[in-house]
Design a protein around this nucleic acid. Structure first.
Length: 470
RNA sequence: GGUGGGUUGGCCGAGAGGCGAGGCAACGGACUGCAAAUCCGUCUACACGGGUUCAAAUCCCGUACCCACCUCCA
């Protein structure tokens, strides 16, 4: 069984054949750090995190690059409004983003290049494009440099569009451009309105890079002129990815073999976006559910499906995930070395079919619960190992230290203390039940429940878990 | 105007010609002192109108509605 991926460039599911066997190079467009991340942003990160984990789990040595765009128009505008340096705003937002990724257990990339750290590479790439006749300095004295779309016949191939069918931007300022669709590789420094710190020296005068050239330069630097997978949100297909590909190919590289695009999380039917102001910020959502539950909610839908966000559906997902957690608490098991059930591997290989993969997990949980009920402890533990192996691929193993450490230092000590206290109450309740004083037994159960601890009666006696909910 | 995606049960959400995804909720049963948890069962849906086929949620034609992109965007 080989991994098959839906390549948006060709519009079909294709076998994944890496350029170099056993390795995978992935470039994912990260964020422009101009405001706090919302759940849509982390969905994208989670989707590609799952891709990366599955590739690693199936024996690939993965190089995963996710960039940070830390200079652009919006960052400059916002920082001016807030009366602080642009790099301070970008850095603050970058830290917020890291927190959100961490809360969802999105693994850190192999490397996370920032645009401002790669201006020389971008300048070099632009020079090459000018040499090759695919770019030109603006005819006016703006200091801009544009990509010449008419010089690149394949322009539009990624998104299957003809240049002449594209609407030119209504607000496009044609000054200096040969074609209104030409896009900026370099933006000349506007001395009147922009800080000098946001400009760099270049053969065409001071300025800063355009958005698209950043990714071409950074992908080329860290993954080479040809690499395996390029990912991002669907809205980046055009213009961003189209332009990236045009630049990199015009410069002589093969660029990405596969293009993967994840769909939206919408709210009230519309795309969540900074400009629409309908964003659900990650910390807000995490007040209602744990990070692992939010991640489960995202993974339970296919990455190419639109998800209409609702707190109701999120609560359902949290309940469903609770089933899995309860089973693992009962059955134990370790995370090491369990093989993936065939249904799970087949689902993941089929264009990362996480919904079917989650269904395979639930099937295993049901089987494991039956083993627990039948008193088959070793069978249940073996099933639990499988469940944990599957969950790990999705970044959802509740026993992963990443998820267990966040209850604070000393929680292990605390658990020992609570265990003694609860055990005393459970003994009292058992005594009451033995003497058929059920009113007293139920009173104890209610008392414990009020503290957020749930009692489960089993043939081996009562066991307790902290639900944290009432 | 061009390009891409969608419409599935009470809800979320898979599937892509036959073999009832999965979860949540609800109801019934087993278990339990009663519950909870767990297990078993019930609820047979695919926007609309045609067509192809032994067989269509799936393919074809048409219609309606929704969303995204066309140079800020995960």
């Amino acid at each position: 069984m080989t991994l098959r991926l839906y390549d948006t460039a060709t519009g079909e599911v294709r076998d994944f054949v890496p350029l170099e066997e056993g390795k995978a190079g992935i470039y994912v467009c990260g964020l422009t750090v101009q405001s706090e991340p919302h759940v849509g942003h982390v969905r994208s990160a989670v989707n590609f995190d799952v891709l990366r984990r599955w590739l690693a789990a199936t024996g690939h040595d993965v190089t995963f690059i996710r960039n940070i765009t830390d200079i652009d128009d919006k960052i400059l505008t916002k920082s001016a409004e807030q009366n602080r340096p642009w790099y301070n705003l970008a850095y603050d937002m970058k830290r917020e983003l890291d927190k959100a990724y961490d809360a969802l257990h999105v693994l850190p990339p192999t490397y996370e290049p920032a645009a401002t750290g790669h201006v020389p590479e971008m300048v070099e790439l632009i020079e090459l494009l000018i040499e090759r006749g695919h770019a030109y300095p603006a005819a006016d004295d703006s200091g801009d440099v544009y990509f010449d779309v008419r010089s690149w016949p394949a322009y539009g191939e990624l998104t299957h569009q003809g240049i002449d069918d594209m609407e030119a931007a209504e607000d496009a300022d044609p000054r200096g451009k040969r074609d209104p669709r030409d896009f900026a590789l370099w933006k000349g420094w506007k001395q009147a309105t922009e800080p000098r710190t946001a400009s760099w020296r270049a053969p065409w005068g001071r300025g800063r890079p355009g958005w698209h050239i950043e990714c071409s330069a950074m992908a080329g630097k860290y993954l080479g002129q040809a690499f395996d997978i390029h990912g991002g949100g669907v809205d980046l297909r055009f213009p961003h990815h189209e332009n990236e590909q045009a630049q990199s190919k015009a410069a002589g590289g093969a660029f990405a073999s596969y293009w993967l695009h994840n769909a939206w999380i919408t709210t009230s039917g519309e795309k969540m976006s900074k400009s629409l102001g309908n964003s659900l910020l990650v910390p807000e959502v995490l007040k209602k559910v744990r990070g692992i539950e939010l991640r489960y909610y995202m993974v339970a839908a296919h990455y190419r499906s639109h998800v209409e966000f609702s707190f109701e559906a999120l609560a359902d997902a949290a309940t469903a995930f609770g089933r899995i957690e309860r089973f693992l608490e009962k059955a134990g098991g370790s995370a090491e070395g369990a093989p993936f059930p065939e249904a799970f591997a087949a689902a993941m290989d089929d264009d990362l079919g996480t919904p079917a993969a989650v269904a395979a997990i639930h099937d295993a949980v049901r089987q494991g619960n039956c083993q627990v009920a039948a008193g088959d402890a070793s069978g249940a533990a073996a099933t639990a190992n499988q469940v944990r192996a599957m969950l790990s691929v999705l970044g959802l193993d509740p026993a992963d230290p990443h998820w267990t450490q966040d209850s604070g230092t000393g929680s292990a000590d605390l658990k020992g203390v609570v265990d003694v206290l609860i055990a005393g109450l459970i003994d009292q309740r058992q005594a009451a039940r033995a003497s058929k004083d059920f009113a007293a037994a139920d009173a104890i159960r209610d008392q414990i429940a009020a503290a957020g601890v749930e009692i489960e009666d089993t043939p081996q006696g009562a066991r307790w878990t902290v639900t944290g909910k009432d």
